Computed example of a mutant assay.
Amino acid sequence: MVDQNDLKASLLDALGRRVRALRLEAGLSVKDFAALAALSPRFVHQLESGIGNISIAGLARASVALGRSLVELAPPLADDHSLRAEIWRLLADSGNEDLVEFQQWLRQRTGRTANARFIALIGLRGAGKSTVGPLLAKRLKTEFVEVDRWVEEAADMSLGEVFETHGEAYYRRLERESIQRLFGSSTGCVVATGGSVVSDAETWESIKRRCFTVWLHATPEEFMRRMRKQGDLRPMQGRPSAMEELKALLARREPLYAESKLKIHTTQKPPVAIVTQIVKAVAASKK
């Protein structure tokens, strides 16, 4: 007969080690994780040490804070060698590419259609899309795609060369085709759009229909500071009124950006906190 105290201790130990591993993988401190999961830092320490007996509701909050499904937090016992336990371990150790391939195989075998889920990051250049995007994709175990990279590949030249050689209309066409190709070929991903994507009504409507849209917002001063820090001086070179032009551009686009499902003020907010905010909003939208 199984000793219930031993069973409880084994469960809590496995759960604690799993939560700690996922928290570290997400780049969250104990304090940040505790705040996001509505737990005390002391209890988080107890949980990760294998002595904190968390409720199902608390575990659900922890899973949202980590950007994981609830079942990912509760590993099978070490002496459980059942088929489903072994599959759980294999899935837990698999990378994104293996998981996507396995998902596609199962859907084909069972005849289930894919319910694609796209998260589109919207905002001006310097909003943080290229920083937040990969972190968010990693947290959600999905792919990260930058539309402008697809445009460059299609044109076989840099964005600057695309505009200089062929003009904005050509860029818009490649952008529209790239996004349509993405929606037609992917089972879901995190996608960073160009800052001007909202200027193309057809493309923007398509994105709003297919994606959970996130507007990464910052002040004009913050945008300019980030571009300088990245060594991108193009907006300022030979243009003494660059700041006023940037403010005017943001003012024109803000009403369109505001159509996004989620707006995040990114100024002085660490990327990990932004990722967690998006994960929680996406999870809430599924309820």
Rank of each mutant, 00 (worst) to 15 (best):
T113G: 13
T203N: 09
H265N: 14
R234Y: 04
E86M: 05
A57H: 09
G123P: 01
L12G: 00
R18K: 05
E152W: 01
V214W: 02
K287N: 07
A65W: 00
E72A: 15
P271L: 03
K138H: 10
L246S: 03
L66D: 03
G238D: 09
A34L: 03
G52A: 04
A248P: 07
I54D: 02
P134S: 12
M243G: 08
E146H: 07
S241G: 09
S82Y: 09
A281G: 09
K31P: 00
W88Q: 12
R107M: 15
S94E: 08
R18L: 01
S29E: 12
V100K: 14
A65K: 02
G160T: 02
S49E: 14
L233T: 10
S186G: 09
L135S: 09
I122N: 00
E97L: 13
A154Y: 00
V151R: 00
I207P: 01
L70S: 12
K208A: 05
T165I: 08
G195Q: 00
A74W: 05
V145Q: 03
Q180D: 12
K263P: 02
D79V: 07
E143M: 11
L124Q: 07
E161G: 00
R23S: 00
D79Q: 11
R173L: 09
L90C: 13
I87R: 15
L15F: 01
G27R: 02
R107N: 15
R23V: 04
S158T: 14
S285K: 07
Q237N: 12
A14G: 09
W105A: 12
T267G: 13
R89W: 06
K269V: 14
T110Q: 11
E245V: 15
E168P: 06
L22E: 00
D98Q: 15
L73A: 04
V151P: 00
K141R: 15
I278V: 04
G160P: 00
H217S: 04
K247L: 07
L36A: 11
R239E: 13
C189T: 11
D93F: 11
G126R: 01
R210C: 08
E146S: 09
Q46I: 01
W105N: 11
A60N: 09
T219D: 14
N5V: 12
S130W: 11
N53E: 08
D13T: 13
A9M: 07
I278L: 05
S199E: 15
S63W: 01
K8W: 11
R239N: 15
K286Y: 07
R68M: 06
E259G: 04
L77E: 11
V100T: 09
A78S: 13
R68I: 04
R23K: 05
L77W: 05
L136E: 04
T142Q: 02
Q268T: 10
Y171P: 03
E177G: 03
L250G: 03
M236P: 07
E175W: 02
S94P: 08
Y171L: 10
R89D: 06
F183E: 06
V145I: 15
E168A: 06
T131R: 14
P235H: 08
Y257M: 01
S82F: 08
R149Q: 08
K229Q: 15
A92V: 06
S29P: 00
Q4Y: 12
S158P: 04
S206N: 10
R234T: 10
K261D: 06
A284I: 07
A201R: 12
K8C: 02
R225Y: 11
L256K: 05
V2E: 14
F118S: 03
S206R: 13
